[in-house]
Amino acid sequence: MADALAERCTMLGGPVIGLMQAVMGSQVNPIRFVEVIERAREIQRIVAQGADDVQDAAYTRWAATAPTVLDEIVDGAEHRDRERVWAAFSDPERGLNALAAACAGQPGW
C-alpha cells in the first residue's frame, strides 16, 4: 500500500538524516559516536513497529536486514570504530542507501 510506504518514509526521514549527519561527523570527531547510537536506536524503534502494512518490495527487503545493520552501526559506534560504522551505514545492499532507494519519490526523500 503506497500510503503505508509514504507514512513509514515520513517517520524515518528525520532520523535517517540525523544518522547520516552523525555518521559523517563521527568520521572526523569521535564525540559524534554518541549521536550515531542515539539516531540508530531511534530508527530501530521505528523499524520494530513492523512492515506488514507496507507493500513495497524494496522497503520490506531493507526492513528485513535493518535490525542487523543498525546493530552493526551501534556496536561500531560503541567501540569507536569509524570504519565499521561507515561500512554498515553505506553498504549498498543493506545500508541506508537501500532505504533511500525504497523511499525515492516520497516527500523529503
Rank of each mutant, 00 (worst) to 15 (best):
A87N: 08
A100E: 08
A57Q: 14
F89G: 01
R84E: 10
E35A: 11
E83M: 11
A102R: 01
G76T: 05
A58E: 14
V47Q: 02
V34Y: 15
H79G: 14
T65M: 15
L70V: 04
Q49K: 08
P15I: 06
G14F: 13
R61G: 01
A4K: 04
V69Q: 08
I43V: 11
D53G: 06
Q44E: 14
I43R: 04
W62A: 01
T60E: 00
Q27F: 12
T68A: 15
V74T: 07
A101R: 11
D71I: 01
G13H: 13
V28D: 09
T10L: 05
G50K: 01
E72G: 09
P107A: 12
G108F: 14
Q49E: 13
P30G: 09
A4G: 04
E72A: 10
D71Q: 15
V47Y: 03
D52W: 07
A87T: 07
A51F: 02
P92F: 13
S26F: 07
L5W: 02
E35F: 13
V23T: 04
I17V: 13
R39V: 06
G108W: 11
R94W: 13
M1P: 06
G13N: 14
R84G: 06
Y59A: 01
L19A: 03
G108C: 10
R39W: 09
A64S: 10
A57T: 11
R94E: 13
P30M: 10
D3H: 06
A77F: 06
A40S: 14
H79T: 07
V54M: 01
I17S: 15
Y59H: 04
Y59Q: 02
A100C: 09
I46Q: 03
N97Q: 14
R94D: 08
A88P: 04
L99N: 03
G18F: 06
A100Q: 13
Q44C: 10
G76W: 04
W86Q: 10
W109P: 00
A40M: 07
Q106C: 09
I37A: 13
V36C: 12
G25I: 05
M20D: 13
E38H: 13
L99H: 05
E78C: 10
M11A: 15
R41F: 08
A98T: 06
A77V: 01
R41C: 05
L19N: 02
E93S: 13
A48D: 12
D71M: 07
E38W: 10
G105D: 00
E83W: 13
A104R: 08
G14P: 05
G95A: 10
E72K: 09
T10P: 00
P92D: 12
V47F: 06
V85D: 05
A6H: 08
A22P: 02
D91K: 05
A58M: 12
E83Q: 11
E42W: 06
R61L: 08
M24I: 11
L99V: 05
F89E: 00
E78Q: 15
